[in-house]
Amino acid sequence: MNKYVTILIVLVVIMGAGIAYKQFSGKEKVALTGETKEFTLYNRENRWSFDPDTITVNQGDKVKLTLINEDDYDHGIAIDQFGVSQRIPANGTIKLEFIASTPGEWPYYCSVSCNSGIVEGKPRGHFDQIGKLYVKSQTTVTPTP
């Protein structure tokens, strides 16, 4: 049999299994809280940090972020869990939003290489530019049937 037919069948099986799992696993679907939490995060000039570097929301909240880059070079923001990965252009502002669907402590980090330097006498750079998004578990909300 043609290799590609086999591959196609395998792929259909995988997708089918995935859909079936989702349908019958009995996992609770996330209920939206209907609340919108808005934050503004700053990349202060040559600080290699997000200001503020912690955010707390509830599971099911809609999160709206405004990111302001005060540097002459690009930064980025990525929150892997929620599929966020955006560029914050030099001296630019971006807005983005997502549903905080999974509880946990999710790092948000700069995803565009941005060099390093000395901040308050200590070396600091791209790899230090990291913050944390706390998503509190939804215990009070009743699951939708």
């Binding site: 070079y73 690009d74 565009v112 941005c114």
Partner: peptide
Amino acid sequence: LIHMFNLAHVHEFFD
């Protein structure tokens, strides 16, 4: 070069 040696991205021509 930028990715491997962690240089700043400057993505605008005049910058």
